[in-house]
Write a protein that binds this DNA or RNA. Structure first.
Length: 274
DNA sequence: TTTTTTTCCTGACAGC
DNA sequence: TGCTGTCAGGAAAAAA
């Protein structure tokens, strides 16, 4: 399941492979993927457009052409594959972009959860409608301990919910939320209003450290998110709590609990519940 | 208004 | 072997 670092890896590879490529045609097999338009509209708008800019905010990919912004979310299992020749089976491929150079960019998504939107191009990508509930990217310099404290201290939810809330900090998913809580020494079930300013400084510091580290390692390859464009992340080797059975610090058994509907890994000895 | 639950999807896996 | 049931999960929609 791609989170910010995995999406960044995908965006970087797409940019390297596709920058300045010209779209000739788009084919759509599962119409619901295109949230605010349809196959006919995408073809009318995108024929002859070049892929010029490759950006990311949170878990969203933003590809810009001369006239349009394409906003895409891979959700759990969305992947792009680039082919010279289409494979025999198009199973789970829902959208194909045909490029003028003959290559085909295929969007593959087993669970059909991913979504794509198209808009007239704007300067400030954060104003695009698909991003209206998305806050600053977690790596944005405007995200500070003070900002996080102010965002959560009068809410009555648990810490994990805050970390997963894309309107506060965008780009954190289930895996990194667990890792951030562990690194900060806090139980994800802690109530947000009991978390101190100092804790928030720690949380934001570790968030940036962990996400930047994961980007350097090409993201985390876990469960269904195996590979995209032939690239496999290595950050799973660095995980300190998520998916583990024993705490690497104190050797205690790590417990697995549902926290805000997500499978959550906690070392109750190292992580304080507030 | 804020918080919780449900919904969308399919493959993997457990249990019979 | 083959069937049924449960689980996984990001974010939007619906319900509380």
């Amino acid at each position: 399941m791609p989170e910010g670092p995995e999406v960044q890896t995908v965006v970087s590879i797409l940019e390297r492979q596709l920058k300045h490529s010209v779209i000739q045609k788009v084919e759509v097999f599962y119409p619901k993927i295109l949230e605010n338009d349809n196959e006919e509209g995408w073809n009318r708008k995108l024929k002859g457009q070049s892929l010029l800019e490759f950006n990311r905010i949170g878990k969203y990919i933003i590809l810009s052409t001369e006239e349009y912004d394409l906003v895409m979310h891979l959700r759990m299992e969305g992947k792009f594959y680039i082919y010279e020749q289409l494979p025999d089976s198009l199973k789970h491929i829902h959208v194909i972009f045909y490029l003028e150079d003959g290559r085909k960019v295929c969007y593959h998504d087993t669970r059909k959860f991913g979504r794509m939107n198209i808009y007239d191009k704007v300067e400030d990508k954060s104003t695009l409608p698909a991003l209206k509930n998305v806050g600053y990217d977690a790596l944005d310099e405007r995200v500070t301990g003070a900002y996080f404290y102010q965002s959560i201290h009068d809410r009555k939810v648990n810490l994990k919910t805050c970390l997963l809330d894309q309107s506060i900090m965008a780009g954190i998913g289930n895996i990194y939320a667990d890792e951030i809580c562990f690194a900060s020494g806090l139980d994800p079930r802690s109530r947000s209003h009991r978390i101190s300013k100092q804790d928030c400084e720690q949380i934001v510091y570790h968030t940036k450290r962990i996400l930047n580290g994961a980007i350097r390692y090409g993201g985390t390859t876990i469960r269904s998110y195996t590979s995209s464009l032939g690239v496999t992340g290595l950050f799973q080797l660095k995980l300190k709590v998520h998916t583990l059975e024993q705490c690497p610090v104190c050797q205690s058994k790590i417990i697995k609990k549902k926290v805000s509907t997500r499978g959550t890994y906690i070392c109750v000895k190292c992580q304080k519940r507030k």
